[in-house]
Amino acid sequence: MSAVSDDFELSSKAAQGDRRAFSTLVRRHEARIRAFLVRTAGRDAADDLAQETFLRAWRNAGRFRGTGSYASWLLAIAWHVFLDASKRQRAELGRRRVLDSAPASSAGDPLAKMDVERLMAALDPEERACLALCLGQGCSHGEAAEILGVPLGTLKSRVARATAKCRALMDAK
């Protein structure tokens, strides 16, 4: 059985209230979701947002139709959770970008980690999400566009813009 159809079966069981099936899905996908959120929202906020993502996935398990991969469905939820949290925080703290600050790398090398942190901090949240999906998660442009809910052209231009910004920063070093 393929991983996608296996995920669909587990999700269907979760929709009927099978908590063990949902735990298997969490175990299978948590690393991916947390890595995406670390890149997009920063290390401090990532775990809370990941918990919220899985809670929403549990509540809406019946909505997963199995047309795409379960990971893509979860990443789309994670992106919306991040956007909602950003909106809430902006409302509370005016224009201070708390969630946007200091996204961190999961790489072990502290020097590389600092580079990634600096690079990602220089980008807009949308650009970070594009790079995190296309370069970090290995998603195709089409997949990433679907996850973020933007047209393919927008996604491609964001990736190009983010890459150009990163290159400029790397050249400036």
Partner: peptide, 26 residues
Amino acid sequence: DLAALLRDTQRPADEAFVNDIEWLIE
């Protein structure tokens, strides 16, 4: 270089996180 920096490495599931989610669902 950029792709290598951003690429997420595979790691085993974090059982503490999974337990937290199970508790939250309960």
